[in-house]
């Protein structure tokens, strides 16, 4: 934070304190609708599900307190728990890097000052606004092993396409490809980050004789690392929570090869009617995501570059 920014922040804080003094609880009344919604629909259910995870809680019939029994069963006596966790981690490990690379690649393409860039921007973003139900139906056709267009195209290239949705070895890959379809939002975030890099830095680099590749690795990439961090975290969380796609496209098959953790939780709750157990499953995933996000954040000091942290130093150097 620069001195000026700090001053502004300080001033704003004082103004807020003044407001409370002058108007009492009035400001809180204004945010009350949100607060009520938050407590009733987010915080409340969250705490309730934590309590539920300590019960054997059938949909029909009375709940019975089991302490940490659900967690014990899950960790020691339910092979599907570990399988689903492994499948989900595998999916995330393949999907997240590809997703980031694809989003960045597309963002670089559309940030070029060429004719039609605006059109492509819309086209690349379009799949992100299509409902996941429609996406699933379209992809079930594209991926059809006998008559799908993907295998037809591969056939034209002389390749025998796999049975995407029927072969347990390929189904996760098919899910990765289908998920990449929604890359548009992340692309836009990278795009705005790219656009906010001042042009004069590139001009300096050009004069200094840096090649486009050097420019990319020494200027572009470091300057967009904050967006990279954001996209990495949201993408990881999204991958760990993936549900709608498998629910619609594979139902966890073939042979449970796409039985993601989200589907496992969903089916425990609504198919097997084990609400308490499903709540325990969900909390375990919450903790995993918390730890993963924490690790990524912790590592970020090593590779994320915040301009304002050095901006003062640079200005000082200039003076």
């Amino acid at each position: 934070m620069t001195k000026a920014q700090r001053r502004i922040a300080k001033g704003r804080g004082a103004a807020v304190r003044g407001a409370i003094g002058r108007w009492g609880a009035t400001p809180y009344l204004f945010i009350l609708p949100w607060l009520v919604g938050f407590v009733a629909f987010t915080l409340g259910p969250l705490l309730f599900s934590a309590a539920m995870s300590l019960f054997s809680w059938p949909v029909l019939g009375a709940p019975r307190f089991v302490g940490l029994g659900n967690y014990r069963t899950m960790l020691t006596d339910d092979p599907q728990f570990w399988k689903s966790l492994a499948i989900t981690l595998k999916f995330a490990a393949i999907f997240v890097p590809l997703n980031l690379a694809a989003a960045l690649g597309l963002a670089l393409l559309i940030s070029r000052p060429v004719r039609g860039a605006a059109l492509f921007r819309s086209i690349f973003y379009l799949p992100s606004v299509v409902s996941s139900v429609a996406v699933a139906i379209v992809w079930s056709w594209i991926l059809n092993s006998e008559y799908g267009i993907l295998n037809w195209l591969l056939g034209r290239l002389g390749l025998q396409g796999p049975r995407w949705l029927q072969d347990p070895a390929w189904a996760v890959i098919a899910m990765v490809i289908t998920s990449l379809w929604g890359v548009g939002t992340m692309m836009l975030i990278f795009y705005t980050a790219l656009k906010s890099i001042p042009r004069d830095i590139y001009e300096d680099a050009l004069i200094a004789g840096a090649s486009p590749i050097q420019q990319f690795f020494s200027i572009t990439l470091p300057l967009i690392t904050p967006s990279f961090l954001f996209n990495l975290i949201t993408s990881t969380i999204g991958a760990m929570q993936q549900l709608s796609l498998v629910l619609l496209l594979t139902k966890g098959g073939p042979l449970k090869s796409t039985y993601f953790y989200g589907l496992y939780v969903y089916e425990n709750a609504f198919r097997h009617f084990k609400l308490g157990y499903a709540a325990a499953n969900a909390w375990f995933m919450f903790i995993i995501i918390l730890v993963l996000t924490g690790l990524i954040f912790k590592s970020s000091s090593l590779w994320v570059f915040y301009e304002h942290e050095v901006a003062g130093a640079r200005k000082g150097g200039n003076a």
Binding site: R163, Q166, D167, P168, A169, G253, P254, L255, K256
Partner: peptide
Amino acid sequence: GQALQKIFNPSI
């Protein structure tokens, strides 16, 4: 269902 899939799945 799993047992039947193993029989009918052409990859298996």
